[in-house]
Design a protein around this nucleic acid. Structure first.
Lengths: 251, 251
DNA sequence: CGATTCATTGATACACTTCAACAGACGTGG
DNA sequence: CCACGTCTGTTGAAGTGTATCAATGAATCG
């Protein structure tokens, strides 16, 4: 789950077989004939960073897959308090079949390309296509596990542990294609603002800023240009997460 | 502790059709022939309050449904900090098909009766039984929504809002079978200790105790015998949760 | 009956929030 | 090219909600 895909060097056409995410997305187990059927109900949309893709309460006319970019799933209380409840990466599924109205906001945090399926036809196909439903079930179970790991973070970790955990997750994920030597360290681009991190971690943006700089001052991480992180001592960062040696987070 | 009983030893017989939860559990959409098949792979187990039903890391030999009682799904850090990540009530599913080892602890918080299915045969049946898989998908999607609601609670709600939300959920869920009049109020048994509530809400047990008594002092709830809650003014409690009018929690 | 578990209550500590000021990066338009 | 506004991030000072530590009470049970 959640492995970044190589940058697209081809245009995204309407052929599912050429799709960069089709081996990981909801359609992963579909056969040619089923992919052809999906092609009849799909379309692509692009969103700019910051765009709201779906608002909680919206009547859902489509579901779909993230093809490129990063989007966030979040909830907002009446007084403005906000909590991110999921990060949507390429191949992740957007929307819930069988539900008429959206429960959460979906916002593009980077430019996003979405492969959309009209909801009704998709639901109908889901009923009659075991492969589709099987993959769907798998993906939802993975998301549930991830959500539960996050609950531990939100409920019990300190601010410093939260930051370290987030850096860990983003770093590992971004480096997962070209596995790095744990001793030689890793570099990565932090594509979230301090505010977005705060919304994710259940903190304020000031606390996020302070804790990141504390980790820097303590030599756990180095910073280039505010959003570019260098982790020289990988195990040191792991220690700071509060998780046991193995990490616990499934990537 | 963990007494495996022959199916006929209790009120709960081996006839799925007579099962008190069969209209809500994973088997809800199954037809007679399928129920009969399930009957060949199932058995009942009883657990005392406090018993560990599954430990994280265990090799999962079974999955199943909670028939009676309440169990909790939780995670523990090395230094003892604990976070509940799910509440398992009658009809809820236990275990994850397709996964060999358990990711979380499952502990009985009250005496629990579990309807167990051997994992391998169940998985096989899941593959070949659309009704079973459909219900499974529905239930997992509901759990995911509930987990995400809980993330908002853990990340952004105050202690008082957390308590009110928990009372709301347990109350609604326990009264969902025999629907109550929202104006006449509701009564329910709070089957969790203060410590269990604390683990669920990401608080300490002292804070839980203080906040429950504060809600009582403010006339939002009444208490009988520490664990028996009476809610006269339903909307008042709803206000205290911080959620918008509609509640948001799916039952 | 003491023993044990569960819950309440008080005093104090501190992690994080809140409020506020400021600095750097960036783009825009005169 | 500079003045400007905006967005993002940093930093300080003060406030507060919840944790921690500690003692006591209430209920249950063999």
């Amino acid at each position: 789950m959640n492995i970044d895909i190589p940058a697209l060097n081809t245009k995204i056409g309407d052929k599912c077989a050429d799709c960069p995410i089709h081996h990981r997305a909801v359609c992963a187990y579909c056969e040619k004939s089923e992919l052809m059927m999906l092609e009849t109900m799909k379309s692509y949309s692009n969103y700019a960073a910051g765009d709201t893709i779906i608002m909680a309460g919206d009547n859902m006319k489509f579901v779909g897959s993230v093809v490129t970019g990063v989007a966030s799933l979040s909830q907002t209380m009446e007084d403005g308090r906000r909590q991110m409840v999921g990060l949507l990466l390429p191949s992740d599924f957007v929307g819930r079949p069988g539900r008429e109205y959206a429960s959460f906001d979906v916002v593009a945090t980077t430019p996003v390309t979405l492969c959309k399926f009209e909801r009704k036809p998709f639901e109908k196909m889901l009923e009659s296509t075991p492969q589709l439903r099987e993959r769907m079930l798998e993906m939802v179970l993975d998301e549930l596990d991830a959500a539960r790991e996050w609950m531990l973070l939100l409920g019990r970790k300190t601010a410093r542990e939260k930051i370290a955990s987030l850096l860990m997750i983003i770093g590992k994920r971004q480096n997962s294609l070209s596995p790095f030597d744990m001793n030689s360290g890793m570099k990565f681009e932090l594509s979230l603002t301090r505010e977005a991190m705060a919304d994710y971690l259940g903190l304020t943006l000031e606390t996020v800023s302070r804790q990141i700089n504390a980790l820097k001052k303590d030599g756990v991480i180095e910073l280039e240009k505010k959003r570019h992180v260098i982790v020289k001592d990988f195990t040191r960062l792991l220690d700071e997460t509060g998780d046991d040696a193995d990490g616990g987070y499934v990537i």
